[in-house]
């Protein structure tokens, strides 16, 4: 019977999904927790570095899970399942870009994030797509426009100026891209409003 073997194969595939599930859940939990930790910057402007370090301290644990995940997927099939962790990767990129800029004042590269988050999982075929990277970057300006408001409330008047410059650079960088992805283009269009808010704050403190 031709069907008998099919059932076997389907069972095998279902097994892969079962094995992946707890790892995916853990990855989701960690990236959610990293992202939630970063939220604390708004209330504790003076402790930003510590908060960034705290968020990034979960990266090794995240990597461990990604490596295990990559081991549980048959070779060459990583793309088949990538929807399962795409969203989490977006959050992780966001945390990386935001914290690296806050601490070291530069835009972290895709390669750097890939190496630190995936580690050996990269050799097993996992990857962070360029799109995921760009999506992650796009979420940063909104967070920074909020930080801008809160740093003034906390009497920090230099951060808004730094923010204004960085968001301007991000916006300019995106303008050079030939974006095919509609979702990405929409997010990019949204940066304009964050820019406007930031400029208003900078204006308020300049007078």
């Amino acid at each position: 019977e031709a069907f008998s073997k099919c059932n076997e194969i389907m069972e095998a595939e279902s097994k892969v999904r079962e094995d992946m599930k707890p790892l995916i859940k853990e990855i989701e939990r960690i990236s959610r927790s990293m992202s939630a930790t970063m939220q604390q910057i708004h209330g504790k402007i003076s402790q930003i570095e510590e908060i960034c370090d705290k968020a990034l301290s979960q990266v090794p644990e995240l990597q461990t899970n990604f490596v295990q995940l990559s081991n549980s997927i048959p070779k060459g099939m990583q793309y088949k399942y990538q929807m399962s962790w795409k969203h989490s990767l977006g959050q992780v990129v966001f945390v990386f870009v935001l914290s690296e800029w806050l601490k070291n004042n530069h835009l972290v590269k895709l390669e750097t994030i890939t190496e630190r988050v995936l580690g050996a999982a990269r050799d097993n075929g996992l990857s962070i797509e360029l799109e995921d990277y760009l999506f992650g970057i796009c979420s940063v300006p909104n967070e920074l426009s909020r930080l801008c408001v809160n740093s003034v409330t906390a009497s920090n008047y230099t951060l808004p100026l730094r923010i204004s410059q960085f968001v301007g650079e991000i916006y300019a960088g995106f303008r050079l891209l030939n974006l095919k992805n509609d979702g990405l283009r929409k997010k990019y269009d949204g940066i304009k409003y964050d820019m406007k808010k930031i400029e208003e704050v900078v204006y308020d403190i300049s007078i």
Partner: peptide, 16 residues
């Protein structure tokens, strides 16, 4: 100036 990797090309290749 912020620069990104060669996104338009590699994306183009995939689309093609």
């Amino acid at each position: 100036q912020v620069r990104y990797t060669s996104y338009p090309d590699s994306q183009q290749e995939q689309n093609d």
